[in-house]
Design a protein around this nucleic acid. Sequence first.
RNA 1: GCUCGGGUGGCGGAAUGGUAUACGCGGAGGUCUCAAAAACCUCUGGCCCCUGCGGCCGUGCGGGUUCGAGUCCCGCCCCGAGCACCA
Length: 820
Amino acid sequence: MTLSTLPVPDPASPGTPAYDPAAIEGKWQSRWRSDGTNTPDLRGADRPFYQLMMFPYPSAEGLHVGNLYAFTGNDIHGRFQRLLGRTVFEPMGFDAFGIHSENYALKQGIHPNELIPRNIENFRRQLRRAGLMLDWSRELSTTDPAFYKWTQWVFLKLLERGLAYKKKAAVNWCPLDKTVLANEQVIDGRCERCGTTVEQRQLEQWFFRITDYAPRLLGNLEWIDWSDSTKTAQRNWIGESDGAEVVFAVPASSAESRIRVFTTRPDTIFGATYLVLAPEHPLVDALTPADHRAEVTAYRERASKQDVVSRKVVTDREKTGVFTGAYAENPATGEPIPIWIADYVLMEYGTGAIMAVPGHDERDWEFAAKFGLPIVRVVAGQAESTEEPLAAPYTGDGSLVGSGRFDGMPVDEAKRAVTAWLADRGAATPVVNYRLHDWCISRQRYWGPPIPVIYCDACGVQPVPERDLPVLLPDIADFRPDDSGVSPLARHAEWYRVPCPACGRDGRRETDVSDTFLDSAWYFLRYTSTDLDDQPFDPELTRKWLPVDSYIGGNEHAVLHLLYTRFVTMVLHDMGYLPFEEPFTRFRAHGHIVRDGAKMSKTKGNVVNPDVYMEQWGADAFRMYLMFLGPFEEGGDFRDSGISGVRRFLDRLWKSALECDGEGEPSPAVMRKLHQTIKKVGDDTPRLSFNTAIAAMMEYMNVLRSGERTPNRAEVAPLVPLVAPYAPHVAEELWERLGGEGSVFDAGWPAYDAALAAEERFELVVQVNGKVRGRIAVPRDVTQEDALAAALADQTIARLVTGPPKKVIFVPGRLLNIVV
RNA sequence: GCUCGGGUGGCGGAAUGGUAUACGCGGAGGUCUCAAAAACCUCUGGCCCCUGCGGCCGUGCGGGUUCGAGUCCCGCCCCGAGCACCA
């Protein structure tokens, strides 16, 4: 491996003990533990700061560099806040339930009850090794009954609030994992985990009404301080669209047969030449006359066999559909228009029916062209001739044509006007639709918290009384799912047979478990209260410490975890359990580390094992290297060769601190650079611009040691707290060796002195006609006149500026541009 | 197709509309050494007359705005991520 061929710096030099990360890192990790350095007094803290990181799934492979990258960024931010004087709470836990663990357990033939604690132990070791400022006294695991008791409580609260409901739904079924997948877990028609093509199944499932919260989830995005990329992803996911529901009467059929249609283009209604219903639409049976029944039924059967996903996903699919034989009346024109069914219309969105305007919608155009349906132009762009027939669907801006009294009206205005006109006649209502679906939380698996519900023939669905929580997940040996579509728990009558909590007669437990996203939707509320037995979270500590001050994590969770968490928080807020409705005051999405331009994966063989690197270079060097390889919010490319640079920096820091001169005066020039560095690192660190902060410290090191000078103590000492968030062990060690009291993290951030940082002279850039032609050293507050005179004294400039300048642009402190 | 990011030396990357390439890696030369490693010092975008403190060209491509554009505007190309028949 390339690693072993790299030279390991040997900083040994006579008189100074070598920087030996292995020794000092172990020393400080145990010191932090024995001194409780990272265990804040939650009740006593006066300036609390909650630094949350996304708890990992404890895989058997151990901590991934991707995890460590994210955690290190969080840790630097947290440690920096602490140096600023905040009491920082940096907890850690394990997202240990779920299909991932279960599948691994099945493959290895080891029960997850055995496997998970083992993995967690390994994660703890690695996290400690990395020197994170974690409060291990408040660790949690989602698989701990003391935790999932309250996950079940959250479910009961949603049920109580009317936000949990059961319905039979077409779900994505993975035939290999033998489970239902959320739409979000289906990628290109395939299972996110195993890549198997997903099928459709009809199952009774529990859902949360997250769609009720769509407007609020969307609205709050206006003010929460989150990465724009994350907010955009949520906005797109929620998918608000503004339009109208239009009613089409079906004169020939019974009076009840009125078809409601959702459209974002009510302005084009005069061009609606047919209707299309989803094959599953409930009105299809009633509408279809006998002579079309056979054809319609055949089409519906074909559509229902298809899996949910491929129906939605496949691109460029040929449109299919059949005519029902029925006609509706276009409420604008009064014309009869045919009613078709086609699978390109989805029952889950809008009303499951559309008015087709082939002239101005690409899908409708394609369909009309294939089946020979009429195409009418009702919108024309500025310069377009309305005489010419459309050659392609026109979806651009313009004004209405062929639309009676609305002719000539611009599209935007017409949307409102047409809706209002139809509304007057009871044929339309303005409606906002969302593409967000309700959250299906049922999983037909073993390794999750049982959904706390009991079914009774007499009383129906009964919540498990709170006093009976947790509903313990039984320790069973045969946890393998089969293709019956029900949970392995359903094979254990001794577990699911319980008395009905209402009437006491025979009841039956729900045998599905809940989605792991429910665990992670509330875990951050538990950390302050892990020792609490009778409540999910302590109200006083929650008021004091929450919402979370800083949360940094991957954008792959932008639409699942982060949206679900916001939803659950809002519900608990509305029920009076939380004084806030948004869980995270500030969220930042970090980038991802790739290697050789590709995601790290076992199959590519480009996975970086953090243990190996920390062993060879030390945790401090590894942390710092991860942060140095690119902008934190964009990620970067991992390469072995770069790590030696940061290690060299730490070696030089070590040497400077141990060999510095305690007597004598510091150099004013070095002190100037020091204060510039304090400013730069202090500005860059909270912005997560870690790479440039590190670069600034390296620059300072170059000044500090230039010409092999012996640094002065006053020049070196303030550098130690600056480095501390990035390289905590070496900082602690040097702090101690320089005679500092206690932990460097309680020492405070060095004071920045703008006067000391100011340069008295600077290089003024001189341009002629915008091209750089020279640089002259001038006093910092030079006037334009003096600068111009000094510039013209320069030979090169004088040669180019022969006559009087046409114009002079002077940017104080920067440049002088002479236009001739 | 849509929505977000990105395209800057040999490489990772830096740059409130104001010195493009900070910092690091790599490379070249040197100091120290019997030698090597380490450490330290100097140089390191391309081209031209190496005669200078010289000139020209350079941030994916083509235009534009500006005294001045990597940065702003218009039109493209390429790469990455996410979404995807959402009416």
